[in-house]
Design a protein around this nucleic acid. Sequence first.
DNA 1: GTCTATAGACCGATAGAC
DNA 2: GTCTATCGGTCTATAGAC
Lengths: 210, 210
Amino acid sequence: MSTPRRRGPYAKTAAKRQMIIDAALAAYAEAGTRGASVKDIAERVGMTDAGVLHHFGSREALLTAVLEARDTALEAAYGKKEALWRPDMIAQNAETPGLSKLFLDLAAAAAEPDHPAHGFFAERYRMLRERFADAIAEGRPPGGVPPTADPDAAWAARVLIAAVDGLQLQWLLDPSIDLTEDTVRLRDLLMDALEPVPRDPAPRDPAPEG
Amino acid sequence: MSTPRRRGPYAKTAAKRQMIIDAALAAYAEAGTRGASVKDIAERVGMTDAGVLHHFGSREALLTAVLEARDTALEAAYGKKEALWRPDMIAQNAETPGLSKLFLDLAAAAAEPDHPAHGFFAERYRMLRERFADAIAEGRPPGGVPPTADPDAAWAARVLIAAVDGLQLQWLLDPSIDLTEDTVRLRDLLMDALEPVPRDPAPRDPAPEG
DNA sequence: GTCTATAGACCGATAGAC
DNA sequence: GTCTATCGGTCTATAGAC
């Protein structure tokens, strides 16, 4: 999966970028936003703050890269469709120490229309809603035929994604909450509600494409 | 409602505090976090930043006061139980221009355990969950007998509150989402799910305490 | 290409004068 | 109660060393 050495400078740069990304997440996990200034992150990899900014341009761009790297790693490990759907993935994504906090901070900031990460988050949620809606419309996790434009499934997708985010906030404020259990229960309720009588064979109607 | 003049200095201070609170919300609504520095807010009321901080101690305390004032005003206008329950209240609270953004920013920051507003938010959510759980357990909005410690109602309360918060984030990123409609639909689904067969008289079993 | 050193702008917070 | 002045800290931009 990893390509430790390619053409000279590139490999070095990519490795350094990854080191900085890891350091940023570690800083966030250990000390939160205030302990994750560019200077703090730079010290973890033995550089100056200006050196770090040479690779990412700005603090916000660096933090966005952390989230992008996380999404990419999850998709590579579990597949694009399943990565954000399975209960253990929901938990892993949420309970990685600093990640929930970083996500929440950055999402709040990016809600501003002219924030540099606004596009990243808007697109991420658009894509998430699409994938969730497809999976919900099919009635089961893995993907097959996309019955897009199902308004009920679209609603369920919005609500389920929203609940995952909101529960993360409550969990950060009160860690006694069981994030995964609450989420899975809602997912199951939504899927049942959208398929009221799935186990009724229904004698063949003259359906098109039947 | 208002007490324009009490004992000399007090009334003046309270009025000034309210002016600053209003200015802070207006600044947030018009220009977001970056346009709501202490200095920006101070200029709106014809003061310097130090003058504003004299009244609130810190920027975070000022912003927390904005949210507290909002909660207090809603409760005074609609009653404690109903204020956070009625669909139009959900919408009003969420769609007041800068309020959603301010709430999200501050909640994200306050998720840090040592943040000055951490206690305020932790307590606010504890109280919200309690009220929602009571209302859900009763099966209808206004309050009566609190059948507390109903784990199903507690779960529904967590999930509904989480969805409201998460939908606000999605709405900020994509204003085409109908916050109120999505929320009410989930509320109704949850209440139906927790009262599976409410209209079944069920001939009296020898239930304990029955 | 990679990184350091330096300097500027802004912010929140504090101390002391009026 | 409010202002001026100032401090420490953060992000950003630029010049230049390696």
